[in-house]
């Protein structure tokens, strides 16, 4: 085992990355052969260390015998600062996986570590900001109050909340709407407010569950661009659930393709398109190649 990890070290970064994806696929058999320390040692060779570590996690809804097995033996590690997309057919457990990371559910088996902490500890440390599929704004609060709700809950003083609200409203370019109520905003604007709210206490991780699912194609693309812009400026790690293959390829560093229920990670596609991404990205042959790869992994080609 010792010789194996040394061999990996000498192999160079490209080599490691290649092996890593192979490893994650063969993780179950590997884990049997490697000690825990060595197993993680391999991941620590990667320069940006994993921020979220999901180790053979299963989730069963309902009774142990006749419940629904939503996730089966899922292993995945998300690097700090990465933009990772989860894609897969409906009902394959994408939302479930996201909720497990956000500690809205607890795994039936396996372990999740977030920045070295349990999901519960990470939630209490406010490491994650969550954006749901619907904006989930509170209709009795105006936009500024909605954005600062998380700060109110951690007991931040009013001047700080005001300052942060201004900052975030500038970030999503909705300064003029601070005193408006949610119903006065379009669906796309409401989604942006939800994203700003998730960023309010500067979480290291943004968990997004099909945030643009209910929007039209044009708004979707625009918000996608703005999300990338925001991601580069706010330096957060994003786990992004989507149904759209082009969206996943356009935005992500890596796309994790999930299999139908019970969900597992079928394949991880490394999106090595140059950043910053723009409309010109779509002219690259590599873009189409990656699109095809993801579609193939989904069984669409």
């Amino acid at each position: 085992m010792q010789s194996r990890s040394r061999q990996l070290q000498s192999g160079g970064k490209k080599e490691i990355a290649k092996r890593l994806s192979a490893l994650s696929r063969a993780s179950a058999s590997l884990r049997a052969r490697l000690s825990r320390r060595e197993y993680f040692g391999i991941f620590f060779l990667e320069k940006p260390s994993p921020l979220i570590e999901i180790e053979s996690v299963s989730k069963r809804y309902g009774a142990p015998r006749d419940g629904v097995l939503a996730l089966s033996d899922v292993s995945l590690s998300v690097r700090a600062g990465e933009f990772l997309s989860l894609i897969g057919p409906s009902g394959c457990g994408k939302s479930t996986l996201l909720k497990l990371i956000g500690d809205l559910l607890t795994p039936s088996a396996g372990r999740i570590t977030i920045a070295g902490k349990s999901p519960d500890a990470a939630r209490r440390a406010r490491d994650c900001g969550i954006v749901f599929q619907s904006p989930t704004l509170m209709e009795w609060r105006n936009i500024a109050q909605n954005i600062t709700l998380p700060l109110e809950i951690i007991g931040a003083p009013l001047p700080e909340r005001r300052a942060r609200a201004d900052e975030l409203l500038d970030l999503i370019r909705l300064r003029d709407f601070a005193a408006r109520y949610p119903h006065e905003l379009s669906a796309g604007m409401q989604m942006q407010v939800a994203i700003a709210r998730a960023l309010a206490y500067r979480p290291a991780i943004l968990l997004m569950d099909e945030p643009f699912g209910a929007l039209d194609e044009m708004t979707r693309e625009r918000l996608g661009r703005e999300l990338l812009d925001l991601w580069t400026r706010a330096r957060v790690t994003i786990v992004f659930v989507t149904h759209s293959v082009p969206e996943a390829v356009r935005l992500s560093d890596r796309v994790a393709v999930m299999s139908p229920r019970p969900g597992r990670i079928e394949r991880i596609v490394e999106i090595d398109l140059p950043r910053p991404r723009s409309a010109a990205t779509r002219d690259l042959p590599r873009y189409w190649e990656l699109l095809r790869q993801v579609r193939a992994a989904l069984g669409l080609e």
Binding site: D103, L104, I130, T136, M138
Partner: peptide, 27 residues
């Protein structure tokens, strides 16, 4: 009250009183 709102409050680690005053009563 939609479950997502409770999830939201839970993700902020809001205590029971905060859930009551900031979500349940107004909603």
């Amino acid at each position: 009250i939609r479950h997502e709102y409770r999830d939201l409050m839970h993700s902020y680690a809001a205590n029971a009183w905060q859930v009551f005053t900031k979500l349940e009563v107004p909603a």
